[in-house]
Amino acid sequence: MSGGARIVVIDDEAQIRKFLRVSLRAHGYETIEAADGREGLREVTVARPDLVILDLGLPDMSGTDVLRAIREWSEVPVIILSVREQEEEKIRALDAGADDYVTKPFGMGELLARIRVALRHAAKGPEEPVITVGPLTIDVGQRRVTLEGRPVKLTPTEYELLKTLASHRGKVMTHRQLLRAVWGPAYEQDIHSLRVYIAQLRRKIERDPARPALIVTEPGVGYRMMAPWDGGGGRADPGTR
């Protein structure tokens, strides 16, 4: 395990902080707690954590505002805790630079998996020459994609889309982030083309496009590239799904 990472938990509910503290410590993380946004920001500034777990519903300020304040000076990975009613806010937070989210109530396994992905991501350099996601290999230098060793023919847009998803594998990408990265800022609202290209891409790389295993839909939010037998982005949390 990626032991020793320092995590700041910002949540106003004492009971949630308590079980997070106990569980995360048991998994070898160091935790610092904050009960509201202001205190959280202070802790993030002072403690220089490796990751922040941020509840969206805080008494003094909105989670998104806390996130924006953090993003002004830090690229620390942030995982959002939200409830189902906070979809809009959640997407705003993701667009504002949050790395991932979990919806309350959540299983500890799910949260731990997200933490691992986020930490690993942060540790990596900005550009990888070759990205491997399960059976898929993307040679960024040569713009070549292979699936289980066989080359896959992709249009330039499909390639860009796949590369964007793969370089953030395990992490949710909102519609907006994907559109901005592949098509440019002017096309941020064009979710329709995004869906069309995702469907095309799935037909080329998925074993069963109807039940995708590599490019997973996050309803209402965006897409996430998973590595089915990679173990990194697994969703092994019985009982919550």
Partner: peptide, 15 residues
């Protein structure tokens, strides 16, 4: 909120 802490704690213990 209590459900979230209950499920979180229980899954921690289970896993």
């Amino acid at each position: 909120t209590p459900l979230a802490s209950m499920i979180g704690s229980v899954t921690s213990l289970l896993e």
